[in-house]
Design a protein around this nucleic acid. Structure first.
Lengths: 217, 217
DNA sequence: AAATATTTTTAGACAAGACTAAAAATATTA
DNA sequence: TAATATTTTTAGTCTTGTCTAAAAATATTT
């Protein structure tokens, strides 16, 4: 049995591992999970014990196939519940994270598969993140960061990296939503800000915001 | 903050208290929750500390108004989730208990109120138990035990007391479902068994079964 | 390469919630 | 009512998951 706490560590390692790194560092996990390095060491030993992680002292951790599947399963549940909350219960996308964080730990295979069917097998959650399938496979998102797009070109906002409350509220305030077509007008090298155009208006976004917007072309 | 464990104790005390008793005994709680008396004593102290229970050493516990509301809120969540599972996700009523037992602890007022609306404000769960409202009030069930019904009279099966897996499976096997009209034919004083008639057939039920069937007239 | 800084691990402590065994209080029976 | 039985509480232990502080290993700088 994988405990709630173990699931949270698996998730963290999974997400950090995605960035192409070979092994994830103890400190990175501690920061992500808002705990201390010593707690992380304890837990990764336990995960290794259970064959969910590969761990070599001082060399960081990676997930085993079993661990990766377990992590993907938690993420699958998290994202399906997010779809449920937004599509069926009138939540907006910036309200769902904390609740999904609780719901993702509910244990029942039948539950999640029935929920998947009830929601008509969605492939992405309300933030544009892909939903892993039963086998733990993610349809890789084919979206690129807005800073890498040439001036003059446009794309469809399909994913936002940061899904914190403050950021989602910023997007709402500025009338930016998934699915919007955005044209890149001008890059300002002084502060790395970007001037963009949506259907309704022109807008200048800071480097911090731009780093979190991903478009599909 | 009320912890998961505390919520389970509140629920147990609430259910046991319903039986008209003034104060609930330590042992009764231990049995219900499948723990030991000493663990119960510890927890009761904590609940009293938090003003959720009235506790006098060696005299048993009762809930304060605050405790009663907290318990009713957990039960409300449990029963609404059961309705969701049966009505929306194709679960049968004998499969939902364990999952609802997990879902009842999810914390979000908005979630449960939206769920209530989504399910169109149901008043009873799939077992016929009434669902407490936001204020913790239960529409009292107006059903009586089948053993108290006169021979020759009939009623509608509206509630089953035991909602264990084995019992619900028994009902399924014998084609008994909530909403069925049942006629009481004959009471056998030797073993307290009861001969009954449904739309489809006649059936003899044991005392143990009869004690759990409630009909509304 | 030696010195310094950073990261990671170990050792020991703590809180929550459960347990066992023994003591104390209450109930029951003779 | 005294003796016995049952229930409840206390005292002390255990596990899980966390923490701090110190030690050990690895990285970085000079």
């Amino acid at each position: 049995m994988v405990t709630l706490s173990e699931e949270n560590y698996l998730k963290a390692i999974y997400h950090l591992g995605k960035e192409g790194t070979i092994a994830v560092s103890t400190n990175a996990i501690a920061e992500k999970i808002e705990s201390k390095a010593s707690s992380v060491t304890d837990m990764i030993k336990k995960l290794a014990e259970k064959n969910l992680a590969n761990y070599v002292k001082y060399q960081g951790v990676s997930l085993t196939n079993e661990g990766r599947l377990a992590a993907a399963s938690v993420i699958r549940k998290h994202r399906l519940w997010e779809v449920f909350l937004v599509d069926k219960l009138n939540f907006s996308w910036d309200e769902v994270h904390d609740i999904a964080e609780q719901l993702e730990h509910i244990k029942s295979l039948k539950l999640i598969n029935e929920l998947d069917a009830f929601l008509q097998y969605p492939t992405h959650d309300p933030h544009g993140d892909p939903i892993p399938d039963k086998q733990g496979n993610c349809s890789p998102i084919k979206s690129i960061n807005i800073l890498e797009i040439e001036e003059g070109k446009e794309g469809v906002l399909s994913f936002v990296k940061d899904s914190s409350d403050v950021f989602l509220k910023y997007l709402n305030k500025n009338n930016l939503a998934l699915g919007d077509t955005i044209k890149v007008l001008d890059f300002e090298p002084f502060d790395n800000s970007l001037s963009i155009e949506t259907k309704t208006k022109k807008l200048i976004i800071s480097k911090e915001v731009a780093q979190n917007l991903y478009l599909s072309l």
